[in-house]
Write a protein that binds this DNA or RNA. Structure first.
Lengths: 197, 197
DNA sequence: AGTGAAAATCTCTCAGT
DNA sequence: ACTGAGAGATTTTCACT
């Protein structure tokens, strides 16, 4: 993975605040030329750190229906099929997969047809059990990481330098300042996952 | 509230896909001039439908720590204070308030300091009980509403015309095609909320 | 990787409908 | 509310470091 420096994080911060901010504006704040900012943004997109430029919408003004939080209890063999389907479904906003293998998602459904709505987005034959909670407020907090800019070691919290390493564990990318932190993290992660059942 | 028409929803859809898409590009697709698109976007921002132009980031590549889902059990008098604090905290990504008055949030914390991390973002003195689930995948699904464009009545699903009405119930804006649907929705909402305890 | 300058593109303003 | 045209701003390209 390409090394993210502090300038990249500043750029991300500024674009998270306002994704249409001119590059010339950003350039001034991070002390680069506009083309240099443009280059870095291109690379951040290519590397997948920036998934897309998008809108933060007040969906309560937009989409009819009650917002709900649904927890699905299901065999681990079905997780992939179910989450794939959720991602493509109407009204689904967030999808979480827990290490126990549960799936939690948020969505909006018509108030008189919550069960039917769920039935449309998840194949209930694949699911052992589920429960639904109505939500009265749903909010996404778009921020890069506030004041803490540098990449920190997931194990010890130290700043990760170019000596550090990165690894993908349980579907997520983690950064470590040294190999021993990486090893210890993996142990702890496995122990935590086992505890959770 | 100003009426959202199909063109507005198309514009939102296009900007959700790529918030830096030129207005001239959008103009062509919705059959308007670029200044007209710009005007509509301004109004969508003013009315609060567009909260901001932002980035969808792959936070797993960015922020150290384990992603977790936390459920807080707390007195209803404390909900506002706790959620306000969460919104301003480092590492918190989503905040949900259920109609039962529970708070659910997602965040990332250092693997060796999950409890401490939670302690930093919520004042545990205000909380009756809480539980933590480690998450292995966390995904936001940014889409406006896919193929279903028109505003639909939260009660009966019919298209809401200018005869319809809108109301804010439990912190969310709902749209109705007629007053009787609005009344029936309120009843059902209250019954559902009562059931949920 | 970055710069500066020119070319191309996009956004905004404004008078008019 | 929208359009079209022009002014002004922004982004991209490219030769060079």
């Amino acid at each position: 993975m390409r090394e993210l420096d502090e300038t990249d994080l500043q750029i991300l911060e500024l674009l998270t605040e306002d994704a249409r901010r001119p590059f010339s504006d950003i350039a001034e704040q991070v002390d680069l030329s506009p083309p240099a900012v443009s280059d870095r943004v291109d690379k951040l997109r290519e590397s997948g750190v920036i998934r897309r430029f998008t809108l933060d919408l007040d969906r309560s003004q937009l989409r009819a229906g009650v917002p709900v939080l649904v927890r699905l209890d299901l065999p681990s063999t079905e997780v992939a099929a179910v989450t794939d389907n959720l991602r493509e479904s109407e009204g689904v906003e967030h999808v979480f997969v827990t290490v126990e293998g549960d799936v939690v998602f948020s969505a909006r459904f018509r108030s008189d047809a919550v069960r039917e709505g769920i039935d449309e987005v998840v194949d209930l034959k694949r699911v052992t059990d589920y429960d639904v909670t109505i939500v009265s407020e749903m909010e996404w907090v778009p921020s890069v990481g506030g004041t803490e800019f540098a990449l920190t070691c997931a194990e010890c919290g130290n700043t990760v330098t170019s000596e550090g390493e990165s690894d993908r564990i349980g579907g997520n990318q983690y950064h470590f300042c040294c190999p021993s932190c990486a090893a210890r993290f993996r142990e702890q992660y496995e122990r935590f996952s086992a505890d959770a059942e």
